[in-house]
Design a protein around this nucleic acid. Structure first.
Lengths: 343, 343
DNA sequence: TTCTCTACTGTGAACGATCACAGAAGCATG
DNA sequence: CATGCTTCTGTGATCGTTCACAGTAGAGAA
């Protein structure tokens, strides 16, 4: 009677076992594993059968040791984590990336760079070649980690247009400017003319672009620009509330507000309600993001939806292409106006 | 003039380079790297200096190839992903696990088992030994993936008590039952006697335990049990709304409701409001989870906070211990009553 | 001295894959 | 028949570590 292996882990079969089982050499098995070129149909079939019979799974460490690739990808978040981790869109992004990578059999390593210590560790880890590329979420400017990775030649795809880095870095972003244009056009179409804006942080490309879109449409519609109608926020709910109060004080005749995030728009609604303005009758409010906050608000927010599912799949596509040797690329995806009750 | 390496990746230094630089052998460098036992202080110092000078980082693939360990851990979500990915507590958990692992220099691989295809792929991946252990989020019963992993002897720590599996699997959970007890005692202390409950799904241990806590406290307080006061939900907001309506129809004299999740509690508030009941004057409402929904609700919800940050660090601690050879363990962590305006 | 014990160091042999290369077989062409 | 070309196959070398083992040096005891 031999030892039972209950509870323990049995030594897994190697490529050698498969080769012996199939009656071919290691080289042939390896060729079958990697695309099957230069393999006779008979050999390929025998190898497939042997793999199924033995339950063989390639040892990625052995493979990586010789290929120099790790066949894995890092998902790096260098944003202040509270903000992003509370954003449901971040979840959609993370999930989308994980699934898109899984389809290529590439594991995703989650990396959070909160403290400087973590920042250093992660930079070392990545530049040491432990991952083949990095999906980067870091919308604030002058990120030292991103710059170091770029300098080290690590394939990199950012979520949102990174600023302060050369054009050598790939990114995938929603068309913020066009989304803002759509929203402001929508407000104009409702007959509003005194359209205010609560911007996002202006050290982020998103914040800048959304404001630019607002300005463009007003200019092309011949509506007089009034800087009293422009107040800035930081995407937080509180800053939306404060922004709306400032707006009401500076331009009491405002009849619409384009708010650069749904969370801020919630704050705007609160402030308007407190001031006795009805939404949308007195003031129409448009948000941005189509987050759960948009439907949780009352009235439900008209907003701009960013295609987060497509953003994630595009990020993965671009990154894998870049790992495969292609040049960096920029992808801009269209947004969509979602009409609800606040306009 | 030599080739510039701008943009390319230079071949990284190996343990051999470090050994040469330090004037010692590979073996000595390896010993320094792995704890430094049986190494003279002089040699250790020379090696440390050489590592700093060369910028050496260990090649994990080469190490893993011979040790058989991967020095990485999987974070596996087999729950229906919509539900969990929308739960902010899930984010806290994921972040906590990632950071706790990072402190041990262990990367976290994110794995989402949505489709059956993904389930199979992930099971193969894990049982092939590509990760040393798994942090498991899967509260529903009879999870085939979990069962397979357990059978394969993969170190496993579940979040929340898994049901339908032997006692051989580690888990970390909040004390659901005690949390429920605290809440119901709190409602009793307010003088309420007709206390209803909207349960969670009763095929999850959390749902079962919270209901059990409710029953226990009423029994020990000598309050008559009335099954009309018990309705079941599925943690969703809509089910909370429906549950409250059923409750009001079956027991109009209800003066308090213990709701097994904040999201459901929001629905309960909506239904009570519509029925013209004031909260907390006519009906006190207690939630569970202390999610953002709790403070977003009006009135703000009294609720039970689960220690998600501690849950994550404990899961990591238990998993690493188990990988290190220790026996499976169960950890139950205390909850906390958070009093707000709904009671 | 001689022996033993401890603390430390170096060396060859793994680990399990890929890769480059050499060579065989089959077939068409000169 | 010799030659060249294509397709397919097997073999050693290799990646960068750790591990087991052998060996050295120095201290202390007999």
């Amino acid at each position: 009677m031999t030892m039972s292996n209950t509870g323990g882990r049995r030594k897994p079969p190697t490529i050698h076992d498969v080769a012996r089982e199939a009656g071919v050499s290691r080289g042939t098995v390896s060729r079958v594993l990697n695309g099957g070129h230069y393999v006779s149909p008979a050999a390929a079939q025998a190898v497939d059968a042997a793999i199924r019979k033995t339950g063989y799974v390639v040892n990625r460490h052995a493979r990586s040791l010789i290929t120099g690739r790790s066949d894995s990808v890092g998902f790096l978040l260098t944003e202040p984590q509270e903000r992003f981790f509370e954003d449901p869109n971040f979840n959609v992004l993370l999930r989308g990336c994980t699934q898109a990578l899984a389809a290529h059999d590439v594991p995703l390593l989650l990396m959070l760079a909160g403290t400087d210590d973590e920042r250093r560790r992660i930079t070392r880890y990545i530049t040491a070649g432990h991952v083949d590329g990095v999906l980067l979420v870091s919308s604030h400017s002058g990120d030292p980690v991103a710059e170091e990775l770029r300098a080290a030649g690590v394939p990199l795809v950012a979520c949102g247009k990174p600023i302060g880095m050369g054009s050598k870095v790939s990114y995938v972003a929603a068309d913020d400017r066009d989304g803002a244009r759509d929203m402001v056009r929508h407000l104009l179409a409702l007959g509003r003319r005194r359209i205010g804006v609560v911007t996002g942080p202006l050290d982020t490309p998103g914040g800048v672009e959304r404001l630019a879109g607002y300005r463009e449409v007003l200019a092309e519609a011949g509506v007089e620009a009034d800087e009293r109608l422009v107040v800035s926020g930081d995407y937080s709910r509180a800053s939306g509330e404060a922004g709306a109060e400032r707006l009401l004080a500076r331009a009491p005749d405002v009849d619409a507000v384009f708010v650069a995030s749904d969370l801020m728009a919630q704050g705007v609604l609160t402030a308007l309600h407190r001031a006795g303005r009805r939404v949308p009758e007195d003031v129409a409010v448009g948000g941005f993001d189509d987050s759960p906050a948009a439907v949780a608000a009352s009235p439900e927010l008209t907003t701009i939806r960013q295609p987060w599912d497509r953003i994630s799949t595009e990020m993965v596509r671009v990154l894998l292409a870049q790992i495969g040797g292609e040049d960096p690329a920029a992808v801009i995806l269209p947004t969509e106006l979602v009409k609800r009750d606040s306009t």
